[in-house]
Computed example of a mutant assay.
Amino acid sequence: MADEPDDVPEMDVPVGMFEDIEDLKTQVASLTAQLKELTGSEEGEPSEASADGAETAGAEAAEDSGEEEWQYPPFILLLDSPEYDDELRALIEWVEGVLVPGYLAEPSADARWCHLWFEHPVAVARLHALWLAWQELTDPVSCGYTGPSVWHRDHLDPCLRELRAPTGPFTGCTKGEHQILHRLPTQVPSAWRHENA
């Protein structure tokens, strides 16, 4: 054959590979069509004008707010009022409505609990993290059927061990008495604050 070069190497290509390539071409064509439909672009790529507009809008929004955007959910101890108060109110409702009646037995010297737990920042931080994990891991859509088991094993058990330990945040709290000054820091460390530089 005159139109093929003399130095073409002979390759053994499995027949199945051609079928795989054809399947991939079909998938790419399907995805390209979906992309065109979603973006309204004729060429299957977002138009430069819409991309530039989105970037400009995002930059303007960031400039207007004067702050970087938070990745939610935020760490509760970093919130200021009224956000902190709202988040704490919802946390109290969950702790008193779900956690205390369902998981906490009578307090003892080996398993402490303070009825004013929300005045202990360490307890608030740990229980808030536990509650966030509960929200995610009890939703079958996001975590499947094993979420509750993971929540118990990885979140509830370690959290309660730390909180209820004789050396935990409720160390000075005995049945009927509440003591917080032994654990209350004067202020939240500055490294925990989200501030503009």
Score class of each variant (00 low, 15 high):
Glu67Pro: 01
Trp117His: 01
Val150Pro: 00
Asp110Ile: 11
Pro46Cys: 10
Leu116His: 15
Asp85Ile: 11
Ser30Lys: 08
Pro9Gln: 02
Glu22Leu: 05
Glu69Asn: 06
Glu83Arg: 14
Ser108Pro: 06
Gln27Glu: 04
Leu38Thr: 05
Asp157Gly: 05
Gln71Ser: 14
Glu93Val: 03
Glu10Cys: 09
Pro121Tyr: 13
Asp157Trp: 10
Leu160Cys: 01
His115Val: 12
Glu55Arg: 13
Glu22Gly: 03
Gln135Ser: 01
Thr26Val: 11
Trp131Val: 00
Gly40Phe: 09
Ile92Asp: 01
Pro185Trp: 10
Glu4Ser: 14
Ser30Gln: 07
Pro169Thr: 09
Trp192Gly: 12
Thr26Gln: 06
Tyr84His: 15
Phe170Lys: 04
Ile180Pro: 14
Arg183His: 14
Ala59Thr: 06
Trp70Thr: 05
Glu42Lys: 12
Gly102Asp: 10
Lys36Ser: 10
Pro82Ile: 04
Ala2Arg: 14
Thr167Gln: 12
Leu91Asn: 10
Gly66Ile: 01
His128Met: 02
Thr39Tyr: 05
Met11Ala: 09
Pro46Ser: 00
Gly53Asn: 11
Thr167Pro: 08
Gly102Ala: 01
Gly16Leu: 00
Trp151Val: 01
Ser65Gln: 02
Leu137Lys: 07
Phe170Gly: 07
Cys143Arg: 06
Val28Met: 02
Leu132Ile: 14
Arg112Glu: 04
Asp52Ser: 00
Glu106Asp: 06
Ala90Leu: 03
Ser65Asn: 07
Met11His: 15
Thr32Lys: 12
Gln71Glu: 15
Glu106Cys: 05
Trp113Gln: 09
Pro9Thr: 04
Gly144Cys: 03
Asp64His: 12
Cys159Phe: 08
Leu78Gly: 15
Val100Asn: 03
Arg126Gln: 03
Pro74Glu: 14
Thr171Val: 11
Leu127Met: 04
Thr138Leu: 08
Gly147Asp: 00
Ser142Pro: 06
Pro14Gly: 09
Phe170Cys: 03
Glu96Thr: 10
Trp70Gln: 01
Ala49His: 04
Thr26Cys: 03
Pro140Arg: 03
Ala165Trp: 00
Gly16Gln: 08
Tyr72Leu: 12
Gly58Thr: 01
Leu77Ile: 12
Gln135Gly: 01
Cys114Phe: 09
Thr56Ile: 05
Trp192Ile: 11
Pro14His: 07
Gly53Phe: 06
Asp3Trp: 12
Pro5Val: 14
Gly168Lys: 06
Asp64Thr: 10
Asp52Thr: 10
Pro121Trp: 08
Trp134Met: 11
Ser108Ala: 01
Arg89Asp: 09
Thr186His: 15
Gln187Phe: 15
Gln71Asp: 15
Cys114Thr: 11
Thr171Pro: 02
Val8Ile: 15
Arg112Met: 12
Asp6Tyr: 14
Met17Phe: 13
Val98Ser: 07
His115Pro: 01
Glu60Gln: 04
Trp134Ile: 05
Ser47Leu: 01
Gly40Gln: 10
Val141Cys: 00
Ile180Glu: 15
Asp23Met: 03
Val15Phe: 11
Pro121Ala: 07
Asp23Gly: 11
Lys25Thr: 08
